[in-house]
């Protein structure tokens, strides 16, 4: 069980948070303009990276804020945490 440094509350146990999956998959502004393929790409297709992944987490049992986490999925080490809308750190 890892620790996540919530940018609003500080370091807390992972069990207080829930994962929102891969980050920076922006919901298309004009979904109706997309082909079925493109829509499926947004909806379902994921890189599911083994290694450093940018992902969304929510402090469900805390401030309920969403934010981003850079985590290595091969060892659960967290490299960075940043707020929604902030620029992601360079790898």
């Amino acid at each position: 069980m890892f620790l996540i440094n919530c940018p609003y509350c500080g370091e807390r146990d992972q069990s207080e948070f829930s994962s929102g999956g891969e980050a920076h998959i922006v919901r298309p502004k004009q979904p109706t303009e997309l082909s079925d393929d493109q829509w499926a790409e947004y909806l379902f297709m994921r890189k599911n990276i083994k290694g450093v992944q940018f992902e969304r987490w929510n402090h469900t049992h805390g401030c309920r804020k969403w934010f981003n986490v850079v985590r290595d999925t091969s060892n659960d080490i967290i490299h960075a945490v940043y707020k929604m809308g902030e620029k992601p750190p360079v790898k």
Binding site: N48, I49, K50, E55, T73, D76
Partner: peptide, 10 residues
């Protein structure tokens, strides 16, 4: 409920 390749859960 999160992606992980660590073969260990919480």
């Amino acid at each position: 409920a999160y992606v992980s390749y660590t073969q260990r859960g919480s």
